[in-house]
Write a protein that binds this DNA or RNA. Structure first.
Length: 209
DNA sequence: GGTAGGATGGGCT
DNA sequence: GCCCATCCTACCC
């Protein structure tokens, strides 16, 4: 897709989009266009991390220096560092003071594909460039420097195409967690090649087909 | 096609 | 000191 088409035929998602319950926002982010600088991709995989009782959420133990962004106003990026080498992108959702967040796990590259290849020289498949939360941030150049930024304005935004193709959503359990591992809170565009784990979905049990 | 294991550092108890 | 919302490589079918 050309940049001209992306900017002309879409609008930046407003704060109200993010100011809703975590599952709704997680589902509706599928098919939207994530943009950072000169790189863009279509979101194909998300996970919901609820506030309150969801022990898999970083927000489960309350407000700390790390988690304060999650409890802040909706529509801000929460970027955290994990396993000593990877960073993961989330959006704070729901009203200020609540602990909901959406993890962006994979996008299908749309623009800036040459840049992504340069950042990930060992990857030769376009669909794999930003497939998985750590791969996505590496391909996009997103780091903890983006933690806390407003994603309704600026260089890191999500855009909604005016003519958005209908997507078929598959729901599974979340990947790579131990607590609350049986909750149906992972959402993918069914059959999309950029979904992490490939087409088999073996790492997350399918709840709704 | 598949999986086992190691790299690596910050957050929190 | 232990846990962790990961990924890559090596190696084996």
């Amino acid at each position: 897709m050309e940049w001209r088409e992306i900017t002309r035929e879409s609008r930046i998602l407003p704060r109200e989009f993010y100011d809703r319950d975590t599952v709704t926002v997680s589902r509706e982010l599928l098919g939207k266009i994530l943009v950072f600088g000169r790189v863009a991709g279509r979101i194909v995989e998300t996970e919901a991390y609820l506030g309150g009782d969801d022990l898999a959420s970083h927000s489960a133990r309350g407000i700390t220096k790390r988690t304060r962004v999650i409890f802040g106003p909706p529509g801000h990026a929460y970027v955290y560092f994990i396993y000593g080498m990877h960073e993961c992108l989330n959006f704070a959702v729901g009203p200020e003071g609540t602990g909901g967040a959406v993890l962006i796990r994979a996008v299908e590259p749309v623009a800036g594909i040459g840049i992504m290849h340069r950042r990930r020289p060992s990857v030769h498949s376009v669909a794999r460039l930003a497939s998985g939360p750590g791969n996505l941030t590496k391909a996009f150049g997103i780091t903890r420097a983006q933690n806390g930024v407003d994603v309704t304005r600026g260089t890191l935004v999500v855009r909604e195409l005016k003519k958005e193709p209908r997507v078929e959503i598959q729901v599974t359990t979340r990947i790579g967690i131990r607590q609350c591992a049986d909750l149906p809170l992972r959402f993918v565009i069914k059959g999309n090649a950029a979904v992490s784990g490939g087409k088999s979905l073996v790492t997350g049990r399918t709840i709704v087909g």
